[in-house]
Design a protein around this nucleic acid. Structure first.
Length: 318
DNA sequence: CTCGTCACGGTTGAG
DNA sequence: CTCTCAACCGTGACG
């Protein structure tokens, strides 16, 4: 039963806070959550003060403790493909040389020959699929292959098993508290909103965080400021018409100022390597390092990427 | 009362 | 261009 109400531009939770279902909280709120926690304020009090559900506060703080980042994960998209033409070509070669080769043997050879590294090595099931779909005509080995593979101890390795990324609920596998970027963050490419949020919200956070947070401060105020304008936007407009507020500065930093309990490896690639220098800010957002070593999608660096925070001008003042 | 966890309904973006 | 799918989101409820 949904107890929150739906406004023209968002929804209001039980605490009176405004949110957009399915969308991350703005970085200003996320940052404040972390900062308040570091001031010793209990999560339950943070929840009430910022009008964010305690589950969300818990989640954000847990993520921050693990990754040192306040940024949300990347939403949407697909995993980078590992079955590149080169890989397929090598698989075909292996199959030609040894028609009876096991998929897992192919996998081992791809690794041994340096065709793939441990990050972009296709799973056994992927190799099987390639053999079946793309190289099936190579010989009449398909049936033989499938029958031969059956006894293999791990015939049904998930496609994604290479990505040490158990579930969406646990950003970091247990036992990997330091979150090695090359593994745990592998699937986590830069947030689609990170840059914009960083650039657009810094001034807000500087202004608001410095202020003593009033217990009665309305979360809507946050959203309003984040929106950067007082002119109500239609939902359709507001969604992606946030005005890029101000020029980014080199020291833009969404990460909370104090040292997190667990810093991510400093060797992690910048979320926007190769992009504008202004994006080299110290936002320790989730970083996806492409297995191929190629640069992340340009979209990841899209400074102009807009966020829907204009949505949070609720006509229904909470 | 507090907090970790999970189901849910939602959004997103690559393929 | 539209669709699919699997990632993510925050909320609310439960223990």
């Amino acid at each position: 039963m949904k107890l929150y109400t739906i406004t023209s531009f968002g929804e209001v939770n039980q605490l009176g806070g405004v949110f957009v279902n399915g969308r991350p909280l703005p970085n200003a709120i996320r940052l404040r959550i972390v900062e308040l926690a570091q001031l010793g304020i209990r999560p339950c009090d943070i929840s009430r003060q910022l009008r964010v559900s305690h589950g969300c506060v818990s989640k954000i703080l847990a993520r921050y403790n693990e990754t040192g980042s306040i940024l949300p994960g990347a939403i949407g998209g697909s995993k980078p493909r590992v079955t590149t033409p080169t890989v397929v070509k090598h698989i075909r070669t292996y199959k030609q040389r040894d028609p009876g080769i096991f998929a897992w043997e192919i996998r081992d050879r791809l690794l041994a020959d340096g065709v793939c590294d441990k990050f972009n090595l296709p799973s056994v099931s992927s190799i099987s699929r390639i053999l079946r779909n793309k190289i099936g005509n190579l010989s009449q080995q398909s049936q033989y292959e499938s029958g031969k593979q059956a006894p293999h101890p791990q015939p049904t390795i998930p496609y994604n098993h290479l990505y040490s990324y158990p579930t969406s609920k646990v950003p970091t596998p247990p036992g990997m508290p330091t979150l090695p970027g090359h593994m745990a963050m592998h699937r986590i490419w830069p947030s689609s909103h990170s840059v914009t949020d960083i650039l657009g919200i810094r001034s807000i956070t500087e202004q608001q965080i410095s202020d003593s947070p009033s217990p009665s401060s309305n979360t809507l105020d946050e959203w309003s400021v984040i929106n950067g304008t007082n002119s109500p936007l239609s939902k359709a407009e507001a969604k992606y018409t946030q005005t890029p507020s101000g020029s980014p500065t080199a020291n833009s930093c969404v990460t909370a100022p104090s040292t997190p309990p667990c810093r991510p490896p400093t060797t992690r690639a910048s979320p926007c390597t190769g992009c504008s220098a202004t994006t080299s800010a110290c936002a320790t957002g989730p970083t996806w390092r492409p297995a191929s070593g190629s640069a992340p999608s340009p979209h990841s660096c899209d400074v102009a990427r807009l966020t829907p925070w204009g949505l949070f001008f609720s006509s229904e003042d909470a």
